[in-house]
């Protein structure tokens, strides 16, 4: 039974999901503070259109998605900043437009159903070397970015007006965060699937928030729980033959409800 974990597909799956879960849980801190869950959901759902285009033109969907998602985030930021429409509405409009285009495009594709199902629900057990390199590159880039700019993003999230008075370009930082999230989502789609990837961004920080008594513990617990839940999900998937994405999300959800229970037991009152 244990030998199966030493097989290349299992090692790749564990490594890829670990890298992705750490970055998702870390960046998810800002998704939670800045209430960007809807944005993340839209980018992940819209990735279906990106996959459809990639399959249509015969390009590797994993690589194509990175550019497509960044473009989507840029488009949302551009329209939101240059119109009087609220950001939520802009996200809704662009989300619906791109999804519709993607669904129409998918209806023309034949024989691509297996690939589509993989991207819809995630299939970390089918991670390729290209996917693994993408995960590693994303992990290095996103970790470096978050290590350097975490404080600035926390400042712009907590006190945007006061940040402006300290010479910080809040709009620029909001834009770079949106692009970063889009890149993270585009790479994570292969692990958890377009439908479920937002869960990796929002469940670990919100579970950690329930039982943390300081910001430091909030960040650490979010990353650790994201990582452990992801590894547990992959193991459950390997040993019990569950679909991987949903297995990872369910373990995260169990931890979230457990944290909610602990919050009530410990009577954490904030």
């Amino acid at each position: 039974m244990i030998e199966i974990l030493l097989m290349p597909f299992a090692l790749k799956a564990l490594l890829a999901s670990s890298l992705i879960s750490v970055i998702c849980a870390w960046s998810g801190i800002f998704v939670t503070i800045k209430r960007m869950a809807y944005f993340s959901e839209s980018i992940s759902h819209s990735s279906l259109a990106g996959i459809a285009i990639a399959l249509w033109i015969g390009f590797d969907p994993s690589i194509f998605l990175v550019f497509f998602s960044a473009l989507m985030a840029g488009l949302i930021a551009l329209v939101a900043q240059s119109s009087i429409t609220s950001r939520d509405s802009v996200i809704g409009i662009i989300h619906a437009t791109v999804m519709s285009a993607g669904i129409i495009l998918l209806s023309f594709l034949r024989g691509g159903n297996t690939d589509i199902a993989r991207y819809l629900f995630g299939d970390v057990l089918a991670v390729t070397n290209t996917d693994l390199y993408l995960c590693a590159a994303l992990f290095i880039f996103a970790s470096a970015y978050l290590a350097v700019f975490s404080k600035t993003h926390t400042l712009t999230s907590l006190t945007p007006e006061l940040a402006k008075l300290n010479g910080i370009n809040v709009k620029k930082y909001d834009f770079t965060l949106m692009i970063l999230l889009a890149l993270i989502i585009s790479v994570s789609v292969k692990i958890a699937g377009a439908i479920l990837v937002t869960a990796l961004l929002i469940i670990p920080p919100n579970a950690a928030k329930n039982i943390s008594l300081s910001y430091n513990s909030f960040v650490r617990l979010s990353i650790i729980s994201g990582l452990l839940c992801s590894i547990s999900g992959v193991l459950a998937s390997i040993f019990f033959d569950f679909p991987t994405g949903p297995a990872i999300v369910l373990v995260n959800a169990i931890f979230y409800f457990l944290s909610l229970f602990m919050r009530n037991i410990l009577k954490i009152a904030i």
């Binding site: 503070i33 404080k151 926390t154 400042l155 907590l158 006190t159 006061l162 928030k209 943390s212 008594l213 300081s214 910001y215 430091n216 513990s217 909030f218 904030i270």
Partner: peptide, 17 residues
């Protein structure tokens, strides 16, 4: 206005900002 459910101490707020 800020998210009052965010677990951040005053000390951490100053050290971060």
């Amino acid at each position: 206005s800020f998210d009052r459910s965010l677990p951040i101490t005053l000390d951490e707020f100053y050290k971060i900002t």
